[in-house]
Nucleic acid binder design. Structure first.
Lengths: 349, 349
DNA sequence: CTGAAAGCGCTTACAG
DNA sequence: CTGAAAGCGCTTACAG
């Protein structure tokens, strides 16, 4: 074989181009483009020819060429802050990748630090380089004002996951944190607890405030006084939970149950309780939020709250893509949580 | 202002192009390209002019245009299988993103299932669409033969992280799993344990075999018989560890210590030990591998082994990029592990 | 229902 | 040391 016989198909890395498909199908590249994009006004017969040719050549449209030529990038950006506990983000990724895959989009990740003074220019660079069609902001990034203001100015669509505050024009998905926290608190009140400690989460996360408010509401409904001596600040990590737990357990009139605003902090409370020779749940009931792997792997397994995080993220992505495509945007999604009662709660002694 | 006065700069989404920069700097686009790519043979004065213009316009090269025009895509793909425990992958992502960021590359993720019959075509589609310059394969994907064979045929560079088997021509990074397991086993032998249970990890992961071999070696060195009745198969998740633990504890002559091949399985062992009323470590020592968050959050905190996963991933990425650029490829990296002794081990009663 | 032309923003290969 | 031309593989806007 001389090189003259080598078909042009192998020109670049052995990958077929739209021209190769057009030639094999005996149509113009525009028609191939129509078929690949499921555009209207192509006869079934032509469609079949093109599809067969594409299949025969293992043709996949070059993403870069589409982005450069078109007005859309077929990709969504997910900006995230590296958390203490990755399981929340794992579910976000799962849901986001699934929705992107189904809709023919790719998902581009951008790790960052929400307190970075350069956050806006980091994101600006990311957008400028990738031309993403929209951005997903998991907590706490949906509440970084400088960032969302920038996105708004540039008319870059974005979706907030579980933000403190809903933005007009933005897609918002959240779970019923306040309701879940009220139910959790009621669960403990129903068991007979009167003195309920509460450890707040990272104040930058909207869920922290909502969970706290659910706690206050449930106490009020039960006719109990809200006692600020039983409330501590945490940061959603094990260590801050442990320290807050120590502080609550050092009280003369300590709580018989502690509500930690997430599972990692609850694990910290259980850790120090046991260091002090307390039995959980007999001497102290402890609960968390999020149903992380830790929740079911520690002893006793944690009573906690489960959110459908993957589904929330999938809806955020699907809505964002819908908005870009000009479909009716679903701008708000509210998801129910599920109370999971395990072994870390019982009636007080 | 009439629209005629609007500079061309805002043509597409307000983002400056190479032409805008060239015009402002008073040079050709080729010179801008040289400066942006740190190519040689540009006078410092010209460099300064171009850099100033780029800065003034907030210019960022369009990734798609570079990929389409050039022979490289400036991106690396990371194909991963969704694990039971995400902390290993979190560290892989951290290291990979860091190395990519430093070298001006972007990292594209592709979730998949290693046992998917279509795995190869999933990756083929991913490569065809994105034109990634190379692929990172965390375990167990570096040992999926159909996949690595395909990448080899297509001459797509790849890096295996902690594979069972090193491939010629591929970049390999791994930690000293066998040594670490031998040290861990010796730690228990030194404490006075004679009957050591062992729970193997997922057989598709190379580390599983290496950790098992380290265990066998240490026993042999200590002049102890290797007893296959004390060995169980696990799958790296909590439940398989719990079941294997139950089985070992049901033995007439049970072990006084159990080595689980990762922390999740060790947590499972501790869980069932406690269900059976055993005290850890007094009645049973338990150890794991990986130093996940769970390891330090459960009670007692786990004696375990820590690997520098982020650094391994960063080296894999840097080597891959080096290979693409034609630098000397670092084809093999071996990293030391660290034994972390915590509260889950003590001398037998 | 289908196609020819122009152009997206860069890099490549070549010229000077 | 610098630049003009061609082209990467698609989509857009237009024509028929």
């Amino acid at each position: 074989m001389t090189s003259d016989e080598t078909p042009d198909i192998r020109k670049r890395g052995g990958l077929a181009t739209i021209t190769d498909v057009a030639r094999l199908a005996g149509v113009s590249i525009k028609t191939v483009s129509r078929v690949m994009n499921a555009a209207p006004n192509v006869t079934p017969a032509t469609q079949d020819k093109v599809k067969a040719a594409a299949l025969a050549l293992n043709y996949e449209p070059n993403h870069s060429a589409r982005v450069l030529a078109g007005s859309r990038s077929y990709s969504i950006g997910l900006v995230y802050e590296n958390p203490h506990e990755f399981s929340y983000l794992k579910h976000v990724l799962d849901g986001a990748f699934e929705a992107c895959g189904e809709l023919g989009y790719s998902l581009l990740l951008k790790p960052c630090r929400s307190e970075d003074a350069n956050l806006v220019s980091v994101v600006r660079q990311f957008v400028a380089q990738t031309r993403v069609d929209g951005i997903i902001l998991p907590p706490p990034l949906g509440d970084v004002d400088a960032l969302t203001r920038y996105l708004g100015e540039q008319a870059i669509p974005y979706a907030q996951i579980a933000p403190r505050e809903d933005h007009k024009g933005a897609i918002v998905v959240r779970s019923a944190d306040e309701v879940a926290s009220r139910q959790m608190t009621s669960h403990l009140l129903d068991l007979g607890h009167k003195r309920l400690g509460f450890i707040k989460g990272d104040h930058r996360h909207g869920a922290s405030e909502l969970r706290f408010e659910g706690y206050v509401q449930a106490l009020r409904e039960a006719g109990l006084d809200y006692d600020e001596n039983l409330v501590r600040e945490g940061r959603f990590d094990f260590n801050s939970g442990a320290r807050a737990g120590e502080s609550l357990l050092a009280l003369a009139q300590g709580p018989s149950a502690i509500i930690a605003s997430n599972d990692d902090m609850a694990a910290g409370v259980i850790f120090v309780a046991r260091q002090q020779g307390l039995q959980v749940p007999e001497d102290l009931s402890v609960v968390g939020f999020d149903d992380t792997p830790t929740a079911s792997h520690i002893w006793p397994p944690l009573t906690t709250v489960k959110q459908p995080i993957s589904e929330m993220a999938a809806l955020a992505v699907a809505s964002l893509i819908g908005q870009v495509r000009g479909d009716e945007p679903m701008t708000h999604g509210l998801f129910d949580c599920e109370l999971i009662v395990r072994g870390s709660t019982c009636a007080p002694r």
